[in-house]
């Protein structure tokens, strides 16, 4: 018997018991209980009469280094992290958006070097882009960029790399993150990343200037 049929039978039995109580039992309290049971039984039966459908969660994404064969694989993992564990999409949008609280990231992979993105994710206050400003009314729940490699988000180095790969791919840029880099960073966790000297006019160096 299907679960729905079982529940329907239980519901009908509850209603039946309620009817019997109301017909034959005189104790007021029991009668009220029978009445309540009937009401609840009818409610359940109505809910059961609608075609039933459960919603299964999408498959769990795991970051499995062994499965990464090409930079594109890396980018697709990065995309998933961007929209889940990394929490990037809680604030940022890709493309102009009406509800985003923080800067639009479309084309960011082409504008910025991967080293710079890495630094922005792990030391968000180190360099702040002078030219950035909010247009229009201030956002209702402004957020400050958190450290992505620390709690509570706590992405690993590989995960950050794959997000950068995704940002580059999304911007139409060739992915400069190599699969070997990821493997390397597994073996040597504290490989220090060289922050490229900033030459682009976009990256005016103005430390300690809050974005709002």
């Amino acid at each position: 018997m299907s679960e729905v049929a079982l529940l329907q039978i239980i519901g009908m039995c509850v209603i039946g018991v309620g009817i019997i109580i109301l017909l034959f039992i005189k104790g007021m309290f029991l009668r009220v209980l029978g009445f309540v049971a009937m009401v609840l039984g009818v409610f359940s039966l109505i809910a059961l009469s609608v075609p039933q459908m459960a919603s299964l969660p999408p498959a769990v994404e795991t970051f499995d280094i062994a499965s990464v064969k090409s930079p594109d694989d890396l980018a697709s993992i990065g995309q998933k992290i961007f929209f889940s564990k990394g929490q990037c999409a809680l604030c940022h949008s890709i493309g102009p958006s009406e509800s985003a609280r923080c800067p639009d990231l479309s084309g960011i992979g082409a504008k910025l070097s991967p080293e710079f993105i890495y630094e922005s994710l792990t030391q968000p206050q180190a360099y702040i882009y002078l030219d950035f400003r909010h247009d229009g009314i201030p956002k209702e729940y402004p957020a400050q960029m958190p450290h992505i490699d620390q709690d509570p988000i706590g992405l690993s180095k590989q995960e950050i790399y794959s997000v950068i790969a995704f940002l580059q791919k999304m911007s139409g840029e060739p992915i400069s993150i190599k699969v070997e880099d990821i493997m390397e960073s597994v073996e040597e966790p504290d490989v220090s990343l060289k922050v490229a000297s900033v030459t682009s006019p976009l990256n005016s160096q103005t430390p300690n200037m809050a974005d709002r």
């Binding site: 679960e3 729905v4 529940l7 329907q8 239980i10 519901g11 309540v36 049971a37 609840l40 039984g41 409610f43 359940s44 109505i46 809910a47 059961l48 609608v50 039933q52 459908m53 459960a54 919603s55 299964l56 969660p57 769990v60 929209f83 889940s84 564990k85 929490q87 999409a89 809680l90 509570p152």
Partner: peptide, 27 residues
């Protein structure tokens, strides 16, 4: 959007099943 439910109960039950639980809880 932050922490996924990775347990076996991550699915959302069908309406009737949920309604049966609500009825039970109410009772």
């Amino acid at each position: 959007g932050v922490m996924r439910d990775t347990s076996e109960y991550a699915y959302s039950p069908a309406l009737g099943y949920a309604a049966a639980f609500m009825s039970l809880n109410t009772f």
